[in-house]
Design a protein around this nucleic acid. Structure first.
Lengths: 340, 340
DNA sequence: TGCTTTAACTAGAGCGCTCTAGTTAAAGCA
DNA sequence: TGCTTTAACTAGAGCGCTCTAGTTAAAGCA
C-alpha cells in the first residue's frame, strides 16, 4: 500500500555507484567528486530517499546520540529543549527525547534512553535517588540540569540559585523594604540553595530578619501561601521573594483580589522568567534563568566528557534580575517606620 | 572507561543457550521452557543487559513505532503525550518524540521521525500546509490531533469544538445573559469550528446577537482583548466565551484589575480545562477537552490503519462543560433590563 | 619515462538484533 | 512398537547502514 522501503542500495543503483559511495555522500565526508556527489543527491531526491537513522546509528561505532529526560508540559523544560536541540545539532549529536509523565516515572524514561544506546544522558529536573544516579553515572556520562545533585560523577549545569535569591532580597532592600519574606520551595529542585541565598541576603542587609512562608512550585501553592500571608495582619512583610514565577503569580493573584495592591502595598519578585512573566499585563519582576545558556553548557559538558574524557564538573550560570512592575519603593508610612 | 557493550551474544554464552533463544525470551514469545527463560533472565540481570532497540527495530519487519510531533512546553500537549505513552504501550507500539520549537519547525520534526522509520505519525496541533500533509499521508498513516485538517488520507482526532462553544453559550444564556461575546481564536487550531459553534449557539437562543472580540491562544492576547472590552463602555457584554483557558485567564486578570467583578459583573467561560483552571483560586468555568480520550483514540486510529488497513477517518470527542466560579446569573439590574 | 602520490571509488565484514527453516528428543497414540 | 505430534532449541540469512582495507587511474614530479 505504501510502496517498498527505499534504501541506499536503490540510490546507488540509480546513480550508478556503490553503496559505500552513497554513504560517503550522505555523511558528508571526503571521498567523492563533486559531480558524483550531485548525481547521488539527485538520485536520492528522485527516489525520495532519506538514510535510515536506526541503521546508521547501529553501523557506526559511536551512536552520537544524547538522551534527554524531561517533564512533559513543563514550560521551562520546553525552553531548555529548544536550546538542547540547537546546540546538539551544531555539536554533531542527535537528541533523543524521553518524557516523564504522571504515569511514566524518571526510571522508565531513562530505561528507554539506555535501550536506545545513547552515549550520554541529560536529565532535566532529575528526581532519582542519589544511589540510582551514581549507578547510572557508572554506565555513561550523566549531567543534571537545574538540580544540583551531589552524586559521584554526575555533571551539574544550573543557575546559581543562591545568588539569584540574594539578588532578589537586595533589590527589595534597596527599595526600602525591611520585612522581606521568602515563599519557600520546599523540596523542589534548587529550593535549598535559594533558601540559603535568601538567608545570606537577609544577613548581609542591616536590619532585616528572616520570614519563611511555605510555598511551592505551582500557582496553586502560591495561592495557598497568599492565604497564610493575608492572615498575618499588620505584621505583614512588604516584600516577597518567591521560589519561582508560577508560585509568585498564584500568590499575587490571590492577594490582589483581597485588596492588596501590588506593587503599592506589596512588592513581589519571582524566579525563572518564564514567558508569561514578560507579558505586559503581568510584568513580573523576576530573577532570570538563562535557558539558552543552560542548554548550551549541558551539551558542552556532555561533549567534553565524551570527546576529551573530562571529569564530571559543575557549571553555574549567573542569574539576572529583571525589574518589571511588581516591585516598587516602600510607601511613605512604611518608609517612615523604617527610618524611625 | 565505561566497559564494553554487552549484547545478546554475551547473555547467550552466560546462560549456555543460543542467541536466538535469548531473543525469544526477551520478545516474550513462546518457544522456551520456563527453566531456560529464568536462566536467561538471570544471566541478563547479572550482566546488566537490556536489548538494543535500534537493532531490534532494524531486525524486525515492522518497526512498531509511532512518531509524535508536539510543541515543546505546551501544557495541553504535555497531557496528550502522557496518554499517548500509556496507550502506545498497551497497543504494543513504541512512541518516538520529536519536538517543535521556535527554531525547529514542524517539517524538521517530521523529517526526524521519517528518518527513524516510524510506521505512522501523530501530529499534535499540526501547522503544515494541506499539500505537505497530503504528501506525507501518501507515505504513511498520519493522524492530526486537535486540528481538523481537511487533507486527503489524514485521520483526525479532535474535540467537537463547535459543540463546546455551543455549550458555553447555552450555559451563559441559561444564566440570563443576553449579551454574550466570543473571544475569538483567529487562525489557531479549532478556532474556526469554535466560532461556528458560537454562532449556532447565539442563533438558537432567542434574543441574542453576535459580538466578536479579537482574542488568541495565550494570556497575552486575552489581556489585549480585555482592553478592547473595557473600552466598550455601558454596552459591554455580560458574558464572555473565550477561545481557550489561557486567553480567558489573561482576560480575567486585566478586567478584574480594572474593577470589573467576575462573576458578579461579568461571567467568563474558558476552553480546554488546563490544570490551572481547576486551581481553587482560579476555578475557571470551562469546556473540557479530554486529553486521555484524545490520546487513546489517536493510538487506536493509527493501530487500526496499520493492522486492519482501515481508511483514514475522523473521530470527534464530545466536550464537557465544567462549571466552576467564573460564571453566575446576571445581576438584578441586568436581569431587569432583559425582562423589559 | 618511470616512479610516487593522491583522488575517487568498491568489496565486504560488522553493528546487534529478528525470524524462517530447520533439528532433536520427548510425549502421545493407535 | 512404530509413527506422528509437539516443545524446545539452533543455524544463519537478513535488516540498512558504516568503515576499513583495499583497487584503479589520473596527476605530479625528478
Amino acid at each position: 500500500m505504501y510502496g517498498h522501503r527505499v534504501t541506499m542500495e536503490d540510490v546507488a543503483a540509480q546513480a550508478g555507484v556503490s553503496r559505500a559511495l552513497v554513504s560517503i555522500v550522505f555523511r558528508g565526508v571526503p571521498g567523492a567528486s563533486d559531480a558524483t556527489r550531485q548525481r547521488v543527491l539527485d538520485a536520492a531526491v528522485g527516489l525520495d530517499y532519506r538514510p535510515d537513522r536506526r541503521a546508521s546509528r547501529l553501523g557506526r561505532s559511536r551512536s552520537r546520540t544524547i538522551g534527554v529526560a524531561f517533564h512533559v508540559g513543563d514550560a521551562f523544560h520546553g525552553d531548555l529543549l529548544g536550546s538542547l536541540y540547537r546546540h546538539g545539532d551544531t555539536a554533531g549529536y542527535e537528541i533523543v527525547l524521553s518524557g516523564v509523565t504522571a504515569s511514566r516515572a524518571h526510571d522508565e524514561a531513562v530505561e528507554t534512553l539506555l535501550a536506545e544506546r545513547c552515549e550520554a544522558l541529560i536529565l532535566l529536573g532529575a528526581q532519582q535517588s542519589r544511589t540510582d544516579l551514581a549507578r547510572l553515572a557508572a554506565r555513561l556520562p550523566v549531567v543534571s540540569v537545574l538540580r544540583n545533585v551531589h552524586a559521584e560523577d554526575i555533571g551539574v549545569v544550573r543557575t546559581d540559585d543562591a545568588a539569584g535569591l540574594r539578588l532578589a532580597v537586595e533589590h527589595l532592600h534597596g527599595l526600602g523594604h525591611t520585612r522581606i519574606a521568602l515563599l519557600d520551595g520546599g523540596r523542589a529542585a534548587g529550593a535549598a540553595d535559594r533558601r540559603r541565598g535568601y538567608r545570606v541576603g537577609i544577613r548581609h542587609s542591616p536590619g532585616l530578619s528572616e520570614a519563611l512562608l511555605p510555598g511551592g512550585v505551582t500557582e496553586l501553592e502560591g495561592a495557598e501561601a497568599a492565604r497564610v500571608f493575608l492572615g498575618l495582619g499588620s505584621d505583614r512583610p512588604t516584600g516577597v521573594a518567591a521560589f519561582n514565577d508560577r508560585c509568585a503569580l498564584g500568590f499575587i493573584d490571590v492577594v490582589r483580589r483581597a485588596g492588596v495592591r501590588v506593587p503599592d502595598d506589596l512588592s513581589v519578585v519571582g524566579f525563572d522568567d518564564i514567558t508569561e512573566a514578560a507579558y505586559p499585563h503581568i510584568a513580573l519582576t523576576t530573577v532570570r534563568q538563562d535557558a539558552a545558556r543552560l542548554g548550551a553548557e549541558a551539551v558542552r559538558a556532555v561533549a567534553d566528557r565524551l570527546e576529551r574524557g573530562t571529569a564530571a564538573g559543575s557549571v553555574t550560570i549567573e542569574p539576572e534580575l529583571i525589574v518589571r512592575t511588581t516591585t516598587a519603593a516602600v510607601q511613605s508610612g512604611e518608609a517612615g517606620r523604617r527610618a524611625g
